[in-house]
């Protein structure tokens, strides 16, 4: 069993608790603050989504939880606890026990996430031996079972296929089968459908939803697409510039967004049945790289409702009826709340 570092769990049902997670990258004499004070809790069986545009720090959060960040990354002043054990304080051996068995990861590009010189069967065998100690016939039976589970037809005949011989959707199913081979409690899927076409995308999301129920897994789904995230998640975190700007149920975020960035994200979504004459609305401006930890709202320069206070101090994430927003406009600027 993994070495445990006692940290009081937030509440009994909590599986994963992330508190004030900050990550910066040191590269070429420059420091980029990719994630700044992200906090959230994930209950057993719960699915949360993380949305945000490119560079907002979504993948960095995912990799920080797995302790798989590049050596150039530095995690500061945070707790990431899984069932009360602090992952950040674990030694590499203990962390390896967590990876695959307790937390599994699926990546965006199934094209490059499988080893090109190993067959599907070899991938499965390897994972099953590591996680379950299965070999030979037992491993074969379990491989077929897992491929069946993720909806691959004629699994026996797929075992001898190499990754390049499979379609994108099929590869992503194999990735998911590999990810669940260790019976993880938490599956982190980083843009699992971005590289796939729309119909396949829907199938993969359905598969994830089904597996979540059948295997009683929690899921963290990362995407830049609010629609993708909302379809699967109970709760959605909207990230901007490395901070969580909104944290609410999928319904609240989609129907009653409070943060101007979230509203802009929803407005920018092209509607399939929308009026074609209405031009697509992009969010003006671009997110810059952050070389300093933020001292004010990072969305302020692009915000249509920006006030003086927004570029002076950092709005805290405040919850009203379980709907969290980090915005001066929403929380009001009564002097007591400004830290």
């Amino acid at each position: 069993m993994a070495e445990s570092v006692p940290v009081a769990p937030q509440d009994a049902a909590s599986l994963l608790s992330v508190r004030d997670l900050s990550v910066c990258f040191h590269a070429k004499g420059e420091t980029v603050h990719a994630v700044n004070g992200v906090s959230f809790d994930l209950a057993r069986g719960e699915a949360i989504g993380i949305v945000g545009e490119s560079g907002s720090g979504k993948s960095t959060v995912a990799l920080a939880i797995m302790q798989l960040l590049a050596p150039a990354a530095e995690i500061s002043g945070s707790h990431v606890t899984l069932e009360g054990r602090d992952l950040l304080a674990m030694n590499p051996r203990a962390m390896r026990q967590v990876r695959g068995r307790e937390i599994a990861l699926v990546f965006q590009d199934p094209m490059t996430a499988l080893n090109p010189v190993l067959t599907v069967g070899q991938h499965m065998q390897e994972a099953l031996y590591l996680h379950e100690g299965l070999k030979g016939q037992a491993a074969f039976i379990r491989s077929v079972e897992l491929l069946n589970l993720v909806g691959i037809a004629a699994p026996e005949s797929r075992l001898s296929a190499y990754p390049h011989q499979l379609s994108g959707g099929m590869r992503q199913r194999v990735m998911i089968a590999l990810a669940v081979s260790g019976n993880p409690k938490l599956l982190i899927a980083d843009e699992p459908t971005t590289a796939l076409d729309v119909t396949i995308q829907a199938q993969i999301l359905q598969l994830l939803a089904r597996l979540r129920d059948e295997l009683d897994m929690s899921i963290i789904l990362v995407s830049h697409d609010l629609g993708v995230v909302a379809s699967l998640s109970d709760r959605v975190l909207v990230m901007y510039g490395g901070t969580v700007v909104e944290d609410a149920t999928a319904e609240q975020v989609l129907l009653y967004p409070k943060h101007p960035y979230t509203s802009a994200l929803i407005a920018a979504r092209p509607e399939i049945d929308g009026d074609r004459d209405v031009p697509l609305r992009a969010i003006p401006g671009a997110a810059g790289r952050q070389c300093e930890p933020p001292s004010s709202c990072s969305f302020a320069p692009r915000c249509p409702e920006c006030m003086d206070v927004c570029s002076q101090s950092l709005p805290p994430l405040l919850f009203v009826n379980g709907h969290g927003t980090a915005c001066w406009k929403v929380s009001g600027i009564d002097g007591e709340r400004i830290p």
Partner: peptide, 26 residues
Amino acid sequence: GSEYVLTARARGFSEFRVVLRYISNN
């Protein structure tokens, strides 16, 4: 730097195995 190496690490393989079966091989 490839994704399949990161994925192999995420699956919990030892560094030795990752270097031998995923990196050196390719």
